[in-house]
Write a protein that binds this DNA or RNA. Structure first.
Lengths: 331, 331
DNA sequence: CTGAAAGCGCTAACAT
DNA sequence: ATGTTAGCGCTTTCAG
C-alpha cells in the first residue's frame, strides 16, 4: 500500500516536496529538459505518478503566453459537410501541436458572446460561413487574434479560403441544357449563404424560377411538394440534402427521376452516390486542413500578408440529371 | 481620432488605468456584478471597447479554479455517426456553459499523451469507444477528473452510456431467418469495437461465417468482393458503411440486392435510406447529449453514484433484407 | 461601492 | 544540475 489515492488534484508543489526537489526541477524533469539528471528525473517521475500528478494546462499556458489551442466556429454539424471540414481541421491542428475547440452557433441565442469567449481561449480561430457578422470578425481581428475565414466572403486583412461555386455551377447548367431541359427551378436561397449565392449565379443562364428553402432534407422535401405539382424539366438544388428531399417527395408523388423531372444537388455526400444524384464534389477535408495550416502560419508570423484561395470543385454526373448514353460515366 | 488601434492584446490593467479605476472594479464591471455603479460600469465598458479588451480565459479559469470546458475523445469523425454524437455533446455542453474541446485519436501515434494533455484543459471529459485503454481511463479517473464513457464497456466507478446492440441484433436475425435465409456471413470484426461484439453476439443464432473487415466503405467493398464470389443468402454487416460497400461490390459484380443476396447494416445513416438498406437506428444525438449532461452533473457533484444507461435502438426494415409482402412497411 | 493584495499552477530568467 | 523568484491575467477576500 502506497497510501491513499489522491482525492484532490496534485500541483507541482506537492510533487516537488515529495521528490525532494524544487518546482523548477519538476517542471524541467517532466518536460524532458536536458538540464536534469536521469536519476532526478526518475525520482520526479515516481513522485508524480504516486500523486497522480496531471499538470494543469492553465498554469502552463499562462506562463508561456500561449494556449496551444485553436478554435473553429461553424453553423452546425448536421450533414456530413461540416463534420468533414472540422475533421480536416482537427487532424491538421493536432499535427501542428494545437488542441481544438469547437463552437456550433446554430440555435444559439448569444452567438457573439460565445465567439468572444472562445476568442479568449485560443491562439487563433477559423470561422465558417456567416456564423458571425463582419463587424464581429473585424473586431476580433482588431485585437490581433489570428483568424481565417472558411466559405465566406473575404474581410480586409483576413485570410480566406473557399471552394469554387460559380464556375462549376455554370458547367452544371451547360450539362443540363445539353440534356434538353428548358424549364428550371432553383431550390434554395440565393440571398442566403455565399456558397449558395455563387451556385445560383452560376446556373442563372438557365433562367430558373427561384423557390426559397432551407438547406436541410426536410426543407427540401417540403418545398418540393409544391414544386412537383407542376414539375419543371429540372430542379437545381442548393445542396445534396435538399436534392435528397426532392427525391423523397418525388417518390411519394409517384414521379420518377429523371424520367419526370431531373434533379441536381451539391456536395457529393455519401448518400448522393446511392441516390444516383448528379452533384458537385467539394474538397471538404482540405478546406479544414488548409484553414488549420494557414492559421498556424499566421500565429507564427502575424505580420505575413493575408492570403486567399479558392479550392476546386468537381461535377459528378450520375443519373438524376437525365438519361445518358451508355458511354457516359455514371460513377 | 481616438488614437491608434491596439496592436497587442490589452489586459485588465490597461483597462483599469484608462478608466481610472482598479482592476478589481474592471473585473466586477465587466461581469455585471451588482457592486458597481452604473456610471462606473459605463466608464469601464468604454475603456474596454476603446482598447479592444478581450479578457483571457486563462487568467479567469486559473483564478476560479475551473476551465468551463469539457472534452470529448473519439476515434474519428468519418461517417455521420461520430459527428452526430459530437454535435449532441456540443449542443448540450454549450447550454450548460461549457466550451468543448475535441480530440480525434485516429491515426495519432501519441494518443495517451494527447488525452492527458486534454485532461489538463478541461473540467471533465467524455471518452468514446476504445480510443484509450482501461488503464489510462482508470488513471485519469484516479486524479478525480470527471469522466463519462460512451459506447464502451464500463469501468469501475465511471459513468457509462451505450446503445442496445445485442437484443436488436437478435431481432434482426429473427427477421432474416423468417425471410428463409439460411447461409449467413457476418462482415466485421467481432473482436473489435464492443458495439460490433454485441451485434455479432445478437446474430450468432444464424451461425454466420465471419469475415473480418474494417468499418469503412472501402473495407466493406473489398471484403465483399471475395464473399460475393460464392454469395451466401445474407450478409450481415457490422455497420452501414460496410453494407454500402457491399452494395457497391454487388453492383459491380452484377448481383442484385436482395434478389441474389440480402444485406443489412447498422446505424441508419442518411445514405442507408437511399440505398434501401435494412439497418438499425441509434439515437446518436442523445448519446452525446446525455454524456454532456451526466458529465455536468458529476462535475457539480463528484460524489454521486456512477450511472449506466443503455439507449434503445430500432430495427429499420427496408428492401435489402429480402422481398416483403406489400403490407410490410418500407420507410 | 471601490481598492489593495493574495493567490490560482506553471515557466523562465537569473543565480548558484 | 538545481534552486529562487518573478510574473502570466484574472477573481476574490478583506478593508475601508
Amino acid at each position: 500500500m502506497a497510501g491513499m489515492k489522491a482525492l484532490t488534484k496534485a500541483t507541482i508543489y506537492e510533487v516537488a516536496r515529495r521528490a525532494g526537489v524544487s518546482i523548477a526541477t519538476v517542471s524541467r524533469a517532466l518536460r524532458d529538459s536536458e538540464l536534469v539528471t536521469e536519476e532526478t528525473r526518475a525520482r520526479v517521475r515516481a513522485a508524480a505518478d504516486e500523486l497522480h500528478f496531471m499538470p494543469s494546462r492553465l498554469g502552463r499556458s499562462l506562463a508561456e503566453g500561449r494556449h496551444a489551442a485553436n478554435g473553429i466556429v461553424f453553423p452546425d454539424l448536421v450533414g456530413p459537410y461540416y463534420a468533414e471540414v472540422v475533421l480536416g481541421y482537427e487532424a491538421t491542428a493536432a499535427e501542428l501541436g494545437s488542441s481544438v475547440l469547437i463552437l456550433a452557433t446554430h440555435g444559439r441565442r448569444d452567438t457573439v458572446a460565445a465567439v468572444q469567449d472562445l476568442a479568449g481561449r485560443v491562439d487563433g480561430m477559423a470561422i465558417m460561413q456567416q456564423t458571425v457578422d463582419d463587424g464581429v470578425v473585424a473586431k476580433i481581428a482588431a485585437v490581433g487574434l489570428p483568424l481565417v475565414l472558411i466559405a465566406r466572403p473575404p474581410v480586409a486583412g483576413v485570410d480566406t479560403i473557399r471552394t469554387r461555386n460559380e464556375r462549376t455551377a455554370a458547367a452544371l447548367a451547360d450539362h443540363l441544357l445539353a440534356h434538353g431541359h428548358r424549364r428550371f427551378v432553383f431550390l434554395g436561397d440565393p440571398a442566403g449563404a455565399p456558397d449558395v449565392q455563387g451556385r445560383y449565379t452560376g446556373v442563372r443562364k438557365t433562367e430558373p424560377t427561384v423557390v426559397r428553402c432551407g438547406l436541410d432534407l426536410d426543407s427540401g422535401r417540403a418545398a418540393a411538394q409544391a414544386v412537383l405539382a407542376d414539375p419543371p424539366d429540372a430542379i437545381i438544388c442548393a445542396n445534396d440534402e435538399v436534392a435528397l428531399g426532392v427525391h423523397l417527395a418525388a417518390e411519394q408523388a409517384g414521379l420518377s427521376i429523371p424520367g419526370d423531372v431531373a434533379v441536381t444537388g451539391w456536395d457529393d455526400l455519401l448518400a448522393a452516390r446511392f441516390a444516383g444524384l448528379t452533384t458537385a464534389g467539394q474538397p471538404m477535408r482540405s478546406l479544414g486542413a488548409t484553414a488549420a495550416r494557414w492559421l498556424h502560419e499566421r500565429i507564427q508570423d502575424p505580420g505575413r500578408a493575408p492570403r486567399r484561395r479558392v479550392l476546386d470543385t468537381q461535377l459528378v454526373i450520375r443519373r438524376s440529371c437525365g438519361t445518358h448514353p451508355p458511354e457516359v460515366r455514371q460513377p
